[in-house]
Write a protein that binds this DNA or RNA. Sequence first.
DNA 1: CCTATACACAACCCAACAGTTGTACAACTG
DNA 2: CAGTTGTACAACTGTTGGGTTGTGTATAGG
Lengths: 119, 119
Amino acid sequence: MTVVDDELSLVFSALADPTRRAILERLALADATVNQLTELFALTQQAVSKHLKVLERAHLITRTRSGQARPCALDTERLDTAVGWIDRHRQVWADRHDRLDAHLENLRARQHQHEEKAP
Amino acid sequence: MTVVDDELSLVFSALADPTRRAILERLALADATVNQLTELFALTQQAVSKHLKVLERAHLITRTRSGQARPCALDTERLDTAVGWIDRHRQVWADRHDRLDAHLENLRARQHQHEEKAP
DNA sequence: CCTATACACAACCCAACAGTTGTACAACTG
DNA sequence: CAGTTGTACAACTGTTGGGTTGTGTATAGG
């Protein structure tokens, strides 16, 4: 993070906390109010509110107003972004392996040629 | 994190830093030594070594010894774990929407019935 | 053997973070 | 209208994190 505060850093560091992941897991099932979420943890309401603020800043949740309650809903768009980044580099790495496999295949083919020449 | 240090927290917090993500991006292309990685950033070798330690602790890279060099290689297994977690909850959320869509569809069907009765 | 190289370890600094308590405030409830 | 409920804001504390400098150490090369 430091100064950057780029999108991915916000998302990943939001996901880095077990409490926040638990909140997201809960919200995947159904929207919830701050108090409903607070009941899930051995934490004060204020602590949960702080976590929600982090999640909101990372655009992982959205919040509306419903009377005195302030329900939270999961927003999966940034999760797509995060998976996108990971997948991209998993893919490059996989391709690299493909290339390695191709390379080894190539070697093996030449090996056979040598064997034919001098068995 | 705090005390937990579970697998996912280690992975996500490792991914939360732009420098570390850049390191992984570089390693997706090819293995590299500490010095090679250091050249990429305006950082001291020690700072890069610290980042590598974090990545190693999260099992996102593996390190071997080759003479005096200590090459780093990407390890994609935990990336799978991370994507797994995200996907699981994206899926739950998507299913929830399916149910909502079904519900709305249901409502709409009934609405039509009413319209037929009293247009 | 001596020196340069590639890296790690240790101590320290400062900023950010997770948590707390205490309080303010707006919106429901009787 | 008074009291309760749901939530946010503020100030403080202890801990973690990224960065630095300074130093140690094993390996490679002349």
